[in-house]
Amino acid sequence: MTQASSVGPASRGGPTEVIQRAAEAELLEAALLSGAHVLLEGPPGTGKSTLLRRVASARHIPFVMVEGNAELTPSRLIGHFDPALVLSKGYVPEIFEDGPLLEALRTGGLLYVEELNRIPEETLNVLLTAMSELEINVPRLGRVAAAAGFALVAAMNPFDAVGTARVSGALYDRTCRISMDYQSAEAEQAIVDLRTDGLDPQWRAKVVELVRSTREHEDIRFGSSVRGAIDVARLAVELARMRSTPTDDWHVGLAAARVSLSGRIRLQDACDRTPEQVITDLYVDVFGAEPVAPEDHSDSDPEGSPGEP
């Protein structure tokens, strides 16, 4: 189901602190102040939505978010007349239920469309009209003009080819593009620290190193975002508590890494191994080989000599 939410000037949905994105924030705010629409391109977990929430909150303007997918039809985007009330009142404006696009147009807010390259072409055409004309004509409702401040900000992962469509040149022609790549290791450690509590800094750094290594391994087509590092850390804390072991226990970390990262990576088509096997190899590279358990001599005869039968 398509999800849309209006979060208003005060954003919600988690921390809005932007780590190492000052340049992108400046460009985004300048583009919006100039009246431009913006396309944020980058892999998942690079802070696209967090960046926009921060800018919208700083400017105290409405913020309407909609999830882009195949179910985002024009009627879901624009809105519709309440069928039950149409029977008794007819097509009158007061029974029209605004969709996210009309809500952003009327309030002069930011319409944020996630996963732009997953929406149907007919829905994209509606967005193009609103971007170009700053208004939209709705059958039986009439013309809805954009209030001052309206802008569309879309985000997409240009490297994901599964379930996506090619974005037309018409969209690029109507937007300013801001490319967002992964942040530095130090920034990602700060992000993990922001969303976890009481972790050993050295262990946390290794978790981030593990996640970053998934983006460079020859068997992996797409690696994990920093969200994977956050989940590894959080899961390890809870698993260690359940097992009554330290958080940095080697086996706890491996279990947390396999669960948190195996679904986030995409292997090369020619790879004949499982994601869990690849994650295990990367884990050993970062955290070292499995510790050897000390030998148990409790059953040996302490009084016997080596030469006795």
Rank of each mutant, 00 (worst) to 15 (best):
R76Y: 02
E135T: 07
P291H: 10
N157P: 08
A229H: 07
A130F: 01
P294G: 05
E26N: 11
E308S: 13
R54M: 02
F159E: 15
V92F: 03
D285G: 12
A30C: 03
R221N: 01
D193F: 06
A4I: 00
L282I: 08
A155I: 11
N157Y: 09
D219F: 03
G8W: 07
H297M: 07
A56E: 03
F63M: 06
V126P: 04
H80C: 04
A22M: 02
L239F: 08
R227T: 04
S168R: 14
G198N: 15
H217V: 08
R258F: 02
V92S: 01
P74G: 09
R264G: 12
S132G: 11
L77C: 05
L52N: 05
G108M: 03
E238W: 13
D197E: 13
G228L: 14
E290M: 05
G35F: 09
P294V: 07
L128A: 12
S213C: 04
S11D: 06
S5I: 15
Q20I: 00
R12L: 12
D299A: 13
G169R: 12
E276F: 02
E97H: 12
P93L: 10
H60C: 06
G304E: 12
A147N: 14
P83H: 11
A205R: 01
R174C: 11
G198T: 13
E209V: 00
P275H: 12
P158L: 02
E24L: 02
T107Q: 15
R227A: 06
A10R: 07
E94T: 14
A270W: 15
L210T: 06
D193Y: 04
R106Y: 01
E216V: 11
L116I: 09
R59N: 08
P62I: 08
D299P: 01
G198Y: 00
K89D: 09
A56G: 03
D160W: 03
A146Q: 11
T245Y: 00
E103V: 09
A151G: 15
L124P: 01
D193S: 15
L194D: 12
L254E: 09
L134A: 08
L87E: 14
N69H: 11
C271T: 15
R54V: 04
E276D: 14
A233L: 06
N69K: 10
E97M: 03
A165S: 13
A170E: 14
S168D: 14
G42F: 02
M156P: 02
L77H: 02
L235D: 08
F222E: 15
S262P: 02
